[in-house]
Amino acid sequence: MKNKKVQIPQIIICIYLLILLVVVNVIGIPIVGIINESFIKWAMNGVLVLSLVPMINVGAGMNFGMPIGISAGLIGLCIAIELRLQGVIGFITAMIVGSLIAIVFGLCYSKILNRLKGKEEIIGTFAGFSFIPIMNFFWTLVPFKNRQMLYPVGGKGLRPKISLKNYFEGILDNSLVVKIGEFQIPVALILFFLILCFLIQYLYRTRVGHVMTAVSENEKFAQISGVNINKYRTKGIILSTILAAIGICVYSQSYGFVELYDGPFMMAFPAVSAILIGGASSKSATVKQVLIGTYLLQTTYLLSIPVANAILVPEITEVLRMIITNGIILYAFLYKGGSKKYGKI
């Protein structure tokens, strides 16, 4: 009974996916192209979804404050561009710098969340939202010199969309592409994603991971057993923030642009939705759920584009995408551990 409930979003998404596939077939769009694209979308968004796992598994809920980690990654990207580092070196620099900044951001973020246990989701949402204008100050005032990232007019402040063309656009997407017939598999991209997944999987086989999952399952139990809860929560939150920073680097190299300002505003929602589709709850999540959830959600997004174009209303893609995203999150609030019984009496 309990297991059946968990899978309802998956079932709905699968049915929806099938319908879209049929429609796409009827319209006559080549399915191979879509499958090729789906691999890229999967790994491109996968790291951001993966970044939710450490926080969930330490009992801090879904990380709606993802814009904080993303901002750290964006700073890393901008610094790499400012230093005019191209190719692999640029990409690695962006990730390293982004991660370092994410440690600082994550530490501050965890201080807030540890004071307000049990309300992480609403706090995270607004912490993330309010971080955007703070970063906007930074983007506007930072004294970077590389003209390719400044506003073309006036030459002050970073532009909202910085092209990565001369730097590391598609550095993972286009390396080691294996062609099998018509299929193209971006091995480097997928490998990078899977290695990160493997590392997280490994984490949960170590002592730290062992303790973290216990904290999220039963905080009181962990406390009585002598676990310093806040220490582990802090570790989990920082790790999530770092992964979000790396995630945006991977995302940006696929996308080809670095999106600043209000770009990261709503990025947490599709990620949360993806992991929920995978079958995660706000108390526990696995890497497998990340892999499945991301693929399902991103592929439905992908398939709805040609369908929407065919009925002449391109805006509908975005709307449908948001309906799926938000609908799944709302469902999770209502039916997964949302309504705890009040009190004992």
Binding site: E121, I122, N326, G338, Y342
Partner: peptide, 15 residues
């Protein structure tokens, strides 16, 4: 969604 009203109402607004 008792105890989670605020975040739920945000998502309701979006949806």
């Amino acid at each position: 969604a008792k105890g989670k009203e605020m975040i739920t109402s945000i998502v309701i607004g979006f949806l």
